[in-house]
Design a protein around this nucleic acid. Structure first.
Lengths: 344, 344
DNA sequence: CTGAAAGCGCTTACAG
DNA sequence: CTGAAAGCGCTTACAG
């Protein structure tokens, strides 16, 4: 592969001059520029980004350590992150933690070894030492979706409190009184917050959230299945199951179906995170939609701000309730909500 | 950030010796090893992968240029690729082409500039010049899922011919005679092959595939919606719509639903690519399942073989029909197929 | 077993 | 405007 030296000799100039035209440095003669460009053309030369990074100490690359790429919510988040990063001239390397702390650690380490310019992370747990060290050492970093309290890093997330309240009000109005939740891991903020919001909302209606109605999941489908089976085995099963993410809702649907029961007749279901398929499931699933694309874009902007020496602030965007039919409600009066890739 | 020099002076040794213990070179004294390791420990030193790559001319990184990450099939493919790569000691950088040739080109260029050791691609079109040049120049490369004829690169893919034949036989048995297809882009192999397989299978039953029953899609949901609307507007609409991927099937469901029609009563639906949600859609969707995880793993193995100087062969794995209820069939006698992340 | 030195492909003060 | 040279952080023949 041709190097800058080859271009220099082809153009009859020094590598310094070649480098200058490649980097749009102002002081280059038109003649030199022309000869360099021609040489680049004939040799099919492309600068070696590795060498450039070593020299300039910047890779123009962002690392994104995400909890689980197979989760449609995170897939969309990753996509919007990459789009915004590209628009700002950065590439992104995704590390899929698969909800496993040791995998998350592996990716953080690998990314740091590669000297990425900044790190976007949605922590799977309370924060690995490696990650906390990096934050303390001043690596530009921002948390997306999930965050770690006590760490001085901006966080870009969605606030589901109002939407959860709307959901509970909706359920209450439909006559449901025994409400259960499939929670995410207590080590994650979203795992805790959604339960807290749910409990607080129930309290507003004078309702309790008994321990038996809090199932411990891990944001993956299998756990939704397992927890739902447990609920159905209860002497007094809940009337509604609220899954704290879309994959656990999938698992819940599997479990209900495996028993030959029906949603919402035998048990109602709602989910945190909306996905296009929820429009077509049997029945369509009532869900809380996050402004996923906007979150990803805001996170990148905050991170790039940090990288380039600007403040880089935390952002909280509201989520909203999308009522469909999985809780037993009649079809809403307005026309069916259209499917779209991202929530506005 | 500490460099190898810092470690050397901390340990009272040369950088050469430090490098040797870091790379497990045999000729290092136990004493030296101990001192280096201690220095590494106290400084929290991590080797700079950028510098190492420049020197060794290998990045231990694979590039994966994928047609569309938001498509669950490709998400799963990407996931299995990353897993297998990690097991073999490689990282992977994903470039999402979003079915747009110019974006594909952008990623191929970026990846090549970063000097990835090998490229895995699922081409969006007939092949960009940059990609063909790279292949010709000897960049280790393998095609996954889609490929470009005439280019000397191994291809790892799934053969859906038999499954499509099974599907058509199944449809014919159910009495359907007017079968339509929502095709993928003609520039892609999967876009063409699936139509060809469908047409060939129809012929075996003495059926035609009229031009009006071939809708041109682009593997994205919107196109499935648009094409389906066209089918429904026909004087003699088809009895079955076969979507060449799962996103176009989603679009087709949207279109049917928007008209107030029902699947399969008013029109039957089948899809290429199976996803967990198809079990829970209304009705459950009959689909052709690819061995996605196995494809991803085989592709990585073939690529790493090439990188490390071994042959690296093409692999073709069979897809299989999964009958559910979207074509009007009665519930199959066996128990409902369980949901799983990957098809065996 | 260990170290001095060259070199990977760039960029960028420093002179001229 | 242009070039010679230093240096980014490593690895690896080459001596000893």
């Amino acid at each position: 592969m041709a190097s800058i030296k080859d271009v220099a000799s082809e153009a009859g100039l020094s590598v310094a001059t070649v480098s200058r035209v490649l980097n749009d440095h102002p002081s280059v003669s038109e003649d030199a520029r022309g000869r360099v460009l021609a040489a680049v053309q004939t040799l099919g030369y492309r600068p070696n980004a590795v060498a450039r990074s070593l020299r300039t100490d910047q890779t123009r690359t962002l690392g994104l350590v995400i909890s689980d790429v197979m989760n449609p919510y995170f897939t969309e988040l990753a996509r919007s992150v990459e789009e915004e990063a590209r628009a700002l001239g950065y590439s992104v390397i995704i590390g899929n933690a698969d909800e496993r702390p040791e995998l998350q650690d592996h990716h953080v380490t690998t990314l740091l070894d590669r000297r990425i310019d900044g790190l976007l992370v949605s922590p799977t747990d309370g924060g690995s030492p490696r990650m906390l060290d990096a934050a303390r050492a001043g690596t530009p970093m921002v948390f997306v979706d999930r965050w770690i309290p006590g760490v001085d890093v901006p966080v870009v997330r969605s606030d589901g409190q109002t939407a959860v309240r709307d959901l509970v009000a909706h359920l209450h109005r439909l006559g449901h009184r025994r409400l259960a939740i499939i929670a995410g891991p207590a080590a994650t903020t979203t795992g805790r917050e959604r339960v807290d919001a749910f409990r607080a909302a129930l309290r507003e209606h004078g309702l309790e959230l008994p321990a038996a109605y809090i199932g411990q999941g891990d944001f993956q489908a299998d756990s939704g299945r397992r927890v739902t089976e447990g609920f159905l085995d209860l002497a007094e099963p809940p009337e509604v199951v609220f899954a704290a993410d879309n994959l656990m809702a999938l698992g819940a649907l599997d479990a209900v179906r495996a028993r030959g029961l029906r949603v919402p007749d035998d048990i109602a279901l709602a989910a945190f995170d909306d996905i296009p398929w929820f429009v077509h499931t049997d029945p369509p699933v009532t869900a809380i939609a996050q402004p996923t694309g906007a979150l990803g874009r805001a996170a990148v902007r905050a991170l790039v701000d940090r990288i380039e020496g600007r403040p880089g602030e935390s952002v909280t965007l509201p989520a909203r309730l999308v009522v469909r039919r999985s809780c037993g409600e009649p079809v809403p009066p307005q026309s069916p909500s259209p499917v779209r890739r991202s929530t506005p």
